[in-house]
Write a protein that binds this DNA or RNA. Structure first.
Lengths: 196, 196
DNA sequence: TCATTACGTTAACATAAGATAAGAAATTGG
DNA sequence: CCAATTTCTTATCTTATGTTAACGTAATGA
């Protein structure tokens, strides 16, 4: 059923712009399917990232390490693109690692191909712009949340999002670092909220 | 000296890509010089942003308002682009305001022209991508700092940046909200650091 | 299956930050 | 030049979070 999964990727891209068959054909030969087991890494700290992934099934997270402690700062779910963006764009060693939280099925293609497409195709260059804009908007909103909301408010906001069911299956110590607090503190917040 | 100031903008753009005269000529007719007095607003919350600015001289800040309280979340300095990016890109009302912290001289051009250039010129589309990538990278690093560093560490990091002299002339209650803390707390952190 | 590890909660204590207020110092505007 | 305002610091009190540790439960792997 490779055709079906490729179509999912094409649809995801089409949410950003109208993609003609001729555009699509420029990428297709470079796409591969990839399977990751739980805890497999997709990108590793210190390595220059070379791949862009598209999640067909499964959940992933990215994390930074400091003093041996992991801080999970982002989650990726089915239907989303995943890559160590900063490392790809700047071609410098990644400061973060990306790990499968569950068994995952991905479509992957090399960033180098994407870069070629930026050169040769105005349409793909536009895709690159729109993706970057999408990312920047998400990060801006995330940052504002961190600066303007309390940990409790951030947790409530997270629950109120449309990803409720997904959030519920993510271990809480990952969620706590996403919120910028400790697992203990998240546990207390949860207790406070249920006592209301 | 309009020629001189236009050249500054062209150089700033050229830091992202090689710009031919023919590319540059597509934008030039739409550029105007604009002067702002201290506390004048460049973009106002609730309004759809229509302009991109380039700071020739002066300092600006952008802030969000909540419960009547302003939180300054970003600063802009000489030689940088300034706009309510999210509002421009999505063409929805801005959630933030941008204000001149000092008297400022800007070059401005309409986002609508930029959008046209994205359509007609692969080169300008690339500029759009590179700007968005640059923004996303900055925001990612900002977010990581907020999640992984203590307020004190964030303040030290800010001072260690290459903007020291600029930081020193920004009122501390703006800096404190940039760091995600109160002015009182920043004052205490400063005291702690001088006692070392 | 069973031992081991990972996970979430709770408790106790220490600490840093928030809230509020007062006052000094600097800046601003008329 | 002076009054008014803004800015920064300091003090007090309160509170939420961090830290560490203990415990029970769930998940995992040999």
């Amino acid at each position: 059923m490779q055709e079906q999964s490729f179509l999912q990727l094409r649809n995801a891209i089409s949410r950003f712009l109208i993609l003609e068959d001729s555009d699509w054909e420029l990428l297709v030969p470079y796409i591969e399917e990839k399977h990751l087991s739980k805890h497999d890494v997709f990108a590793r700290e210190g390595k220059i990232a070379i791949e862009i992934g598209f999640i067909l099934d499964g959940d992933m997270r990215h994390y930074y390490t400091r003093d041996g402690i992991e801080k999970t700062t982002y989650f990726y779910f089915e239907g989303h693109f995943v890559c160590s963006y900063l490392s790809c764009v700047t071609q410098t060693p990644s400061e973060l690692s990306i790990e499968a939280m569950t068994n995952c099925t991905l479509l992957v293609f090399p960033y180098s191909r994407m870069k070629q497409l930026f050169e040769v195709s105005h349409k793909w260059e536009r895709f690159g712009r729109l993706i970057a804009e999408y990312l920047a908007i998400g990060l801006e909103q995330r940052m504002v949340g961190l600066l303007m909301l309390s940990p409790e408010e951030r947790y409530i906001q997270l629950l109120e999002g449309n990803k409720q069911k997904i959030i519920e299956r993510i271990p809480q110590h990952y969620i706590s670092s996403y919120l910028g607090i400790t697992p203990v503190s998240l546990s207390r917040i949860r207790q406070r909220l249920t006592n209301k």
